[in-house]
Design a protein around this nucleic acid. Structure first.
Ligand code: ZN
Ligand code: ZN
Ligand code: ZN
Ligand code: ZN
Lengths: 154, 154
DNA sequence: GCCATGGCGATACGATATAACCTGGGATGA
DNA sequence: TCATCCCAGGTTATATCGTATCGCCATGGC
């Protein structure tokens, strides 16, 4: 998977430009998430990580996940308790609505094959903001996860 | 709380009309969820339930929750791993977009006080459906949970 | 050298959720 | 009447998800 290596290098560049360290452990965890074909749970990740680091324990993987989540390199799927890579990583040519870090996003989760796509639909974010404000609510981060059937499985 | 009793009776009516049983256990769990001031976790529910049923165990509460979720009487907040009553229960005079069972809904979760409101914003549902279809994805149930600050806490 | 910081190994624990098995009661139908 | 089935729910154990805490070591100012 050459695109995995590319994504890891982009992540390393992003981290370097922010003055944070993409250490070997974090790199390994990111790579495992990138190699997974669908969102992957923390303990599945731990099993795979043990192939690379004998002594890995839950805090090992959770600390790496915390870092990757903070940096916006991966996302957590709340419905699945699982993690997947952010598709926006390394899109340095983008700007505006927060690409690369804490950007608005939505997920489409296929109930047949489990494939999950991250999309960025400004119209959805705008509708949510408006609906929240209509209730006097000041919106922050919105979790949007849609279960359904993907194009391949239809 | 007279409105709790009313809501339980409405739920009983809805269940009877569907030919399913709102048993004593399910009624107790629904009542505890209705009495909670914010979304309540399964194990907090279990603690309270033990005041009513000495031998209650995790499966006791999870089975009741499964039933109440299936019937659309309560909702699960994925970000919180907690449960709250559906505000639409018993709105028999409503029809159209699925009131009372599997209806589109969104949640506004206050990060200060934890108060959570269920809203129904058709514009949000429409934007999500459109964004999903644009990807060739056939959308089903959408989880929308917005973290932010409520009107009281602003 | 000294100390602050950050990464991470290691143990333990808490919180969330399900699997597997069994019992009893009511409906159904011979 | 009795066999049969389904369903609710009790019981025990286990899987999964996530934190708290301690301590070691390397790095980098001072
Ligand atoms: Zn992203
Ligand atoms: Zn699919
Ligand atoms: Zn509802
Ligand atoms: Zn509030």
């Amino acid at each position: 998977m050459p695109e995995v290596a590319t994504a890891v290098e982009q992540a390393a560049f992003v981290c370097a430009s922010r003055g944070v360290q993409l250490t070997e452990l974090r790199r390994q965890v990111l790579r495992l998430i990138l190699e997974a074909e669908a969102p992957i749970g923390a303990y599945a990740l731990l099993d795979k990580l043990r192939g690379l680091r004998a002594g890995a324990a839950p805090p090992t993987v959770y600390r790496a996940l915390d870092f990757l989540l903070e940096q916006g390199l991966v996302h957590k799927l709340e419905r699945l308790n699982a993690y997947m890579p952010c598709v926006e990583t390394g899109h340095a040519h983008h700007d505006g609505h927060g690409h690369g870090h804490d950007h608005p996003h939505q997920f489409l989760i296929c109930r047949k094959c489990g494939a999950t796509a991250e999309i960025c639909a400004p119209a959805v974010a705008a509708a949510i903001t408006e609906a929240a404000r209509a209730q006097g609510f000041t919106p922050g981060v919105a979790t949007v996860e849609v279960e359904g059937v993907c194009a391949n499985c239809a």
